[in-house]
Amino acid sequence: MASLLQAFLDPRKNWLAKQHMKSVSSRLRRYGLRYDDLYDPYYDLDIKEALKRLPREVVDARNQRLKRAMDLSLKHEYLSDDLQVYYLLIY
């Protein structure tokens, strides 16, 4: 049953899951975030371990994106379109 649910939620196997991922990614891009930034290291120990193994620069960039997104959200603002494209290209 769990494997069926995982297959249903996997964007590589399910067209609806892929469309949902694209929709969420486009909304996150307004804040300069990536879809992978949504994973919470406190909720999943695998994510916590993966973040430990990443280079320090990658983890710092992720933390900076999260801080910027919180700041923009509190101000009820979005990144400008040119910055959204810029951050999309460098990440």
Rank of each mutant, 00 (worst) to 15 (best):
L72W: 05
S23L: 00
K18D: 04
L72R: 01
D37Y: 05
D40V: 01
L89W: 04
N14T: 05
R30H: 11
D71M: 14
D44Q: 14
A50E: 15
V85Y: 10
I90N: 02
E77H: 03
N14L: 03
R12N: 00
K18R: 14
R62P: 11
Y42R: 14
L72H: 08
Y39K: 12
R27F: 09
D36K: 13
N63M: 14
D44T: 10
K75P: 05
W15K: 13
S73R: 13
V59L: 14
I90R: 07
L79D: 01
L38Y: 03
N14R: 05
M70E: 03
A50G: 08
K75R: 15
Q19A: 05
V59P: 01
Y86T: 05
D82P: 00
P11T: 00
E57T: 10
L54N: 03
R65T: 07
A2I: 01
S80Y: 08
N14Y: 05
L51R: 12
L72F: 09
I47V: 14
Y31L: 13
K13F: 07
D36N: 14
N63A: 13
M1E: 14
A50R: 15
Y78H: 03
K52V: 07
R65K: 08
L83V: 08
V85E: 13
H76I: 01
Y87I: 02
D60M: 11
R34Q: 15
L51G: 03
P11V: 00
A50P: 05
L79E: 04
S80H: 07
R27D: 02
M1W: 12
H20C: 01
L79F: 01
A17W: 03
D37H: 04
E77Y: 00
D60P: 01
R62G: 08
Y39W: 12
L74Q: 11
V24Q: 00
A7K: 12
R12M: 02
S80M: 10
L72Q: 03
S25A: 13
L89Y: 02
K75N: 05
A2E: 06
M70A: 11
G32D: 02
D82G: 03
M1D: 12
